[in-house]
């Protein structure tokens, strides 16, 4: 029976800095996306082909969606990099997590059990990035931070902070405080939604794979592909909605 751990497994430690398997997977995701970006930037042509076609389709689809939300193409293009990067990072890391080898290639580690007895633990080299709360929490914090930066840039720091802290009247003061608290709630909601879905998917795949190793995991793998896409879309769309609210002049 495999050992299921909520926390990401530590592979090594460099000068006290822990390198976890989810951090390694994050680096792989970043590497894949940078390679794709380099390929695109080198071959951008007026008549698109190959990778450029796919990327242009993705860009146009997102921009159309964002144009409807922001009301102008200019604003859609301004905030497109934030939304698109979140979507790409999450979807690639989610899909990478269901590839063969991720979660199954690793090494055995001798551990001391809870009551002091020795044991052996399997430590996978790679693990779906979003199945670690560190990743989803970091993404949530970054998303909320970028939303607030975008809001401050659009309407000014004073007016933006005025949404949270105001002494105009008691109701506004209270609503502002609630708004401020809701920013933290957004971080928690972002991070736990993504973490919960991906981690649950990982656990589901492990259990189904153990119970019926051949054939049975296929529908669940397809489900995870779908869930991976939906979660990336939800994260990106929520960020987009929060940005559009933050930059709106009320």
């Amino acid at each position: 029976m495999p050992h299921i751990e909520i926390a990401a497994e530590k592979l090594i430690s460099i000068f006290g800095f822990p390198i976890t398997n989810t951090l390694v997977t994050s680096w792989v995701v970043v590497g894949i996306l940078i390679v794709l970006a380099t390929l695109i930037s080198r071959r951008v042509a007026i008549i698109p082909g190959g990778v450029q076609n796919i990327f242009e389709f993705f860009t146009e689809s997102f921009l159309d969606l964002m144009e409807g939300m922001f009301g102008s193409r200019e604003n859609a293009e301004r905030y497109f990099p934030i939304v698109a990067t979140i979507f790409l990072f999450v979807i690639i890391s989610n899909w990478l997590g269901i590839l063969p080898g991720v979660g199954s290639i690793g090494f055995f580690e001798h551990t001391a059990g809870e009551h002091g007895e020795a044991g052996i633990k399997f430590v996978p080299l790679f693990r779906s990035a979003a199945s670690d709360l560190n990743v989803t929490l970091a993404l949530g914090i970054v998303a909320v931070l970028l939303v607030n930066i975008a809001g401050a840039q659009a309407i000014g720091i004073g007016r933006h902070l005025g949404k949270y802290f105001t002494l105009k009247n008691p109701i506004d003061t209270f609503v502002g405080l609630l708004e401020f608290i809701s920013e933290f709630a957004k971080i928690i909601s972002f991070s736990f939604r993504l973490f919960g879905n991906v981690f649950a998917g990982e656990v589901l795949l492990v259990i189904v794979g153990l119970l019926v190793p051949y054939g049975a995991p296929i529908p669940f793998l397809l489900l995870e592909i779908f869930v991976g896409f939906i979660q990336a879309l939800v994260f990106a769309m929520l960020t987009m909605v929060f940005i559009s609210i933050a930059v709106a002049h009320h």
């Binding site: 976890t20 951090l23 970043v30 940078i34 698109a84 990067t85 560190n134 970091a138 970054v142």
Partner: peptide, 21 residues
């Protein structure tokens, strides 16, 4: 690790912005 992940994401964000978007 949280900071490393955030830095990771920011690096990705700036590189994608420059070389892809």
């Amino acid at each position: 690790v949280l900071l490393a992940q955030a830095v990771n994401f920011f690096i990705l964000f700036f590189l994608l912005k420059k070389f892809a978007y």
